[in-house]
Design a protein around this nucleic acid. Structure first.
Lengths: 210, 210
DNA sequence: GTAGACATGTAATTCGTTACATGATTCT
DNA sequence: AGAATCATGTAACGAATTACATGTCTAC
């Protein structure tokens, strides 16, 4: 039972993001980007649900050039619900990292590919730290904590990569044939036919592109 | 297009986890726990798909007391498919942290609740680091990198919490009425009736429990 | 005796994302 | 002219978790 989209929206409203469009930005580029994600397809239905349950109010605002806006606000009932959700026991953090999983199989890649991957990965975290550093204003202590942890966490993760990559890259250079084991002796059970092989490779490539 | 369950299983097979049961442990308690998750409901169908596509082989093994085992092995075609998947451009890491999101709303909690939450959170990461430190053997350099990063990353995140919590806890003590804003002046638009209020609170509570 | 480890699998449900639909305005 | 920003919403789709179903053996 993780925090669901309704609670996430309620939190965003409490933090001062008051339209569907703004809420998405809060999770995409704003203070919550590191810790949760939420897209339009979840936000707008959630907002309507909150409205129906009396946890939020809405005032429509016509604008000069721009399309009409629906400005939402959290109600007292909404704050009660949010507080209630914050008392529950949380599922522990889950980092979904395709990068790290991939690096586990460095022995299947060329050393160059590994190095490029590590460059890109570390840079991604440094960029994230910079983005978070740009957040302005004087938020309440909790959100300040969020930003501080985000900045430092990203930087120290990037530093950690740089500290450990040399050992990895060294091991790949000196270790057993790093990349040449492309086709080892075929397994004796079920002799994978050439047709099967290409079929499988083609399927994988096709699945990746669209 | 994140790495899907088939690729994840392929990776686990390459890493030497060769039954559905073992693969789950690799993602639950083993070297991958920090970076990906996968449960039985995904693993067994994925394994059968890999078998059908010739990316893995399977030998059934009857056992003394225990139930029968299906021992899988990655094929050359499987290794090609895995390598192919590792070349793609990855979606950037996404940390799902209900803890951190909750702490953003520290101003809605009692200082005690915040402190308890932070204790629990930091301890969770220290425990994780210890679990990872217990991993034995001499894995290939990529998996060693995974373990090293995991241990240090968890520890430095825990340290980061301890370093920043004092500022947060201080701000909550000295700041504006920390917890007493339970019910502020009702919003003038849409005067939330008492019936609506309790209704909403009840609905939220009910939604959380089952 | 009862809880937990070992072991595999399926089906329903719950989610959320992606893509689509619409449309004016401003910046390049 | 074309791309990007602002702005809201829906429907189809995909993917994973949860719960269910089954059964033995060992350790407390």
């Amino acid at each position: 039972m993780p925090l669901d989209s309704k609670i996430l929206c309620l939190g965003a409203l409490d933090a001062g993001f008051n339209t569907g469009y703004d809420i998405r930005k809060a999770f995409e580029e704003g203070p919550f980007q590191l810790y949760q994600s939420l897209s339009y397809g979840s936000i707008y239905p959630a907002l309507n649900a909150l409205l129906a349950e009396g946890l939020a109010t809405c005032t429509e605002q016509a604008q000069d050039g721009r399309p009409d806006k629906k400005v939402y606000a959290i109600t007292d009932a909404g704050r009660v619900a949010l507080r209630q959700a914050l008392v529950r026991r949380f599922a522990f953090d889950r980092l979904r990292s395709d990068f790290m999983f991939a690096i586990a199989f460095a022995h299947l890649m060329s050393p160059d590919q590994v190095s490029t991957l590590l460059d890109e990965y570390a840079q991604g975290y440094r960029d994230l730290a910079h983005t978070l550093a740009k957040e302005t204003g004087t938020p309440p202590p909790g959100r300040q904590f969020l930003l501080d942890m985000g900045r430092e966490g990203c930087l120290s993760w990037a530093r950690c990569i740089e500290e450990h990559r040399s050992a990895l890259e060294e091991a790949l250079r000196t270790g057993p044939g790093p990349d040449d084991n492309a086709i080892k002796a075929p397994a004796e059970e079920e002799p994978a036919t050439p047709s099967r092989l290409t079929e499988a490779a083609a399927a994988t490539t096709a699945a990746g592109s669209p």
